[in-house]
Design a protein around this nucleic acid. Structure first.
Length: 324
DNA sequence: GGAATTTGACCACC
DNA sequence: GGTGGTCAAATTCC
């Protein structure tokens, strides 16, 4: 058994080294020419894609090791959803009325977290994983500066997809979002996007946002596997309503800021990530966004935002365990 | 009319 | 008892 472990570790290290190398190349690219050469963008995309694949493999291996070789935990699943942790459905179902046995807190579901970075404070929606998420709640967390938003798969009822996730802005860095996934997607859409959710941005198949409302999907990413496609950047719906909590939140909501009800609908950032399937079409910035933009961060070029890496590669290499 | 978000309340766990 | 997670009604937008 040890042998197997060592072998796996070696492979893991090799994979991580590759990723690191690619990250460096990517950085060099971005630092240099990205703005002028169209080819640079393609190059970056290719690198990102490769990186994702490597990370996927690495994560899988790492998780296998951590889990004692259990095949189920690895977030990488076939569905590409944020990492479908293979096991998932453990019968979750909580619910108000579930008196009997299921507790509301899904402790039995596999869970993994990720950190997603956006380019500007107004980009309240981290990545979009190409899946449909529906927000079902938001809550202020004790000690946290920002509220936590709760999402679950839009197809939860129709397809019994139990995936859910929690998105919360980190206190220290408004540009960073902690995304915690619970369970994996079992819905049909997940299967499709899973395969297609390349960060490389090929799945922009994006639908016109027909049914997807303002915020179903939201962010994504998978830390551990980074594969689903982290395209960070644009987001349709805000995970939270950037209330007055926001540090920079301008307080004035003039207009109709967000009223109860579909209020948040029109807030998205104007970035269109190539990979954000559904979220794209979301339109424009809420007046407040613009305001925030000017006060907070400077907008970053699309190319840069597109591939925000969910995690710090260097840090990941140094402390891989901390990411699992 | 359908779909989605917001928000308050309820329930379970620590 | 406090906090976190989820439900469901109300409201709004497409």
């Amino acid at each position: 058994m040890e042998a197997g472990m060592s072998e796996e570790k070696s492979a893991l290290v090799a994979e991580l080294v590759r990723v690191l190398e690619m990250v460096r190349q990517l950085e060099a690219h971005m630092a240099g020419q990205q703005q002028q050469q169209a080819g640079g963008e393609q190059r970056c995309r290719a690198l990102v894609r490769t990186m994702r694949d490597s990370i996927d493999r690495a994560v899988h291996m790492a998780m296998s090791s951590c889990a004692g070789g259990q095949p189920e935990s690895p977030p990488s699943g076939g569905d590409g959803s944020p990492r479908s942790a293979g096991s998932d459905q453990a019968g979750d179902f909580r619910g108000r009325g579930n008196a009997a046995g299921q507790c509301k807190k899904r402790k039995t579901l596999p869970k993994w977290s990720t950190q997603v970075r956006v380019s500007a404070v107004q980009d309240v929606t981290p990545l979009d994983d190409g899946l449909s998420w529906r927000k079902y709640g938001q809550k202020d967390i004790l000690g946290a500066k920002y509220p936590r938003a709760y999402f679950r798969c839009t197809h939860r009822h129709s397809q019994s997809c139990n995936a859910s996730k929690q998105v919360q802005r980190t206190d220290g860095n408004p540009l960073l979002f902690d995304v915690v996934y619970h369970g994996s997607h079992t819905c049909a859409q997940a299967q499709q996007h899973g395969a297609a959710a390349h960060p490389g941005g090929s799945n922009q198949g994006a639908r016109p946002a027909a049914a997807s409302g303002p915020g179903e999907h939201s962010q994504s990413q998978a830390q551990t596997t980074a594969s689903p496609g982290f395209e960070a950047a644009a987001g349709p719906a805000l995970p939270f309503s950037l209330p007055s909590n926001g540090p920079a939140a301008g307080a004035d909501d003039a207009g109709g800021s967000r009223l109860p009800g579909g209020g948040a609908r029109a807030t998205a950032s104007h970035f269109v990530s190539p990979a954000t399937p559904e979220c794209l079409a979301r339109d424009v910035p809420h007046p407040r966004d613009a305001e925030l933009a000017s006060t907070t961060n400077s907008p970053m070029p699309m190319e840069e935002m597109d591939f925000m890496f969910p995690l710090d590669a260097a840090d990941f290499l140094e402390n891989p365990a901390s990411y699992f």
